[in-house]
Design a protein around this nucleic acid. Structure first.
Lengths: 201, 201
DNA sequence: GTCTATAGTGCGATAGAC
DNA sequence: GTCTATCGCACTATAGAC
């Protein structure tokens, strides 16, 4: 009788590919390495993903989903305080950037490796960043910022800077100034007339 | 007697390689493409650069030199006003990021393509960023910032963010908020007691 | 397994300055 | 004609996509 496909094959490939792509970059990794490390056969990989590009796209979609799970959990801890929620997102990026095997934001990295706008890697990166921008905008509006779009964008720049700077100069590089910078920006945009908009230190 | 070596060969290779590497990334470009586009022979390329890695290093060194030429020219236009000089550097990165064929900061891009700390691409990227950080620190000190290192780092993050964000979302993305953000940060750090530290709009 | 691409080597042919 | 810079091509070895 025919053997049934083992469940979780796709996830296994995705997990292995994710580790290798993050650590070394996509172009530096051959599918052979992915196959070797999964212990699966070549045919199985090509059954799940019709090409390397598609695997890259699927990897970034999974990364995006994992990110939002973390973010929304974090936001729930500061419900009703959108200014604090924006800061929490910055804190989350810092925590990620400080993790032991950090090698840069997978979305920025992958976009930089694939310049063609139609490449799944770039498409997913762009989509992720647009979702981030939109989420920050809604928080900035909720926080009563005078120029919510501008505040959201300022935080996007800050977080992008945290990622790229940390990936080259490490967590003691410029990223060390990120929290203070975020507070300055949020407070400057959200100063209530009463002056009670100070974020916790 | 003998045929003279053609002058400018090295520069020609460097110019062509620079264009291709910037546009497509280093790993996406084969030396054959560089050779084809220069119209030179393979042997000549290998006489000037003993390996692709070395070519990458030389390219980034040249890019670093070109950057500082631009920066110091810009700084001279605001001599004696270090706060304005910091803003001028941010303006310069914005101008570069807005140029028609911008594909991200070559230093961040190359560092993301080569994770090995010993790779010439990564070494030069790191060196470039450290020089930038130091230059900004000296300006922040000269401007009398209360926490000059922190201000310098905040601007580093901002500029890094401008580059990566523009390379994916274009100049109408978050980078549009960069100038306002820079002003907020510089003013917050350099407020003179007399309150006369406002930057020109 | 197949086919393509790539880094890097080496050499004969040729072009051009004297 | 002589001499050398440089081209163009052939070649190896390795790796990658599929």
């Amino acid at each position: 009788m025919a053997r049934r496909p083992a469940p979780g094959t796709r996830d296994r490939i995705l997990r292995v590919a994710s580790g290798l792509f993050q650590r070394h970059g996509v172009r530096a990794i051959g599918l052979q390495q992915v196959i070797d490390e999964t212990g699966l056969g070549k045919s199985l990989l090509y059954r799940e993903f019709s090409s390397k590009d598609e695997l890259v796209g699927a990897w970034l979609r999974a990364s995006d989903a994992a990110w939002w799970t973390k973010v929304e959990a974090e936001l729930r801890r500061h419900d009703g305080d959108p200014a604090r929620q924006m800061l929490a997102i910055v804190e989350l990026t810092l925590e990620i950037a400080r993790s032991p095997d950090f090698h840069g934001c997978v979305f920025y990295n992958t976009a930089s490796e694939f310049r063609d706008a139609e490449h799944p890697g770039r498409r997913e990166a762009r989509a992720h960043l647009e979702r981030m921008r939109e989420r920050l905008r809604s928080l900035a509006r909720a926080a009563g910022a005078e120029a919510p779009e501008e505040l959201a964008d300022a935080l996007m720049l800050l977080m992008g800077g945290v990622y790229v700077s940390t990936s080259v100069l490490g967590p003691t590089g410029p990223a060390a100034a990120a929290l203070a910078s975020a507070r300055t920006l949020i407070e400057a945009h959200c100063q209530a007339p009463a002056g009670d908009s100070r974020l916790p230190r």
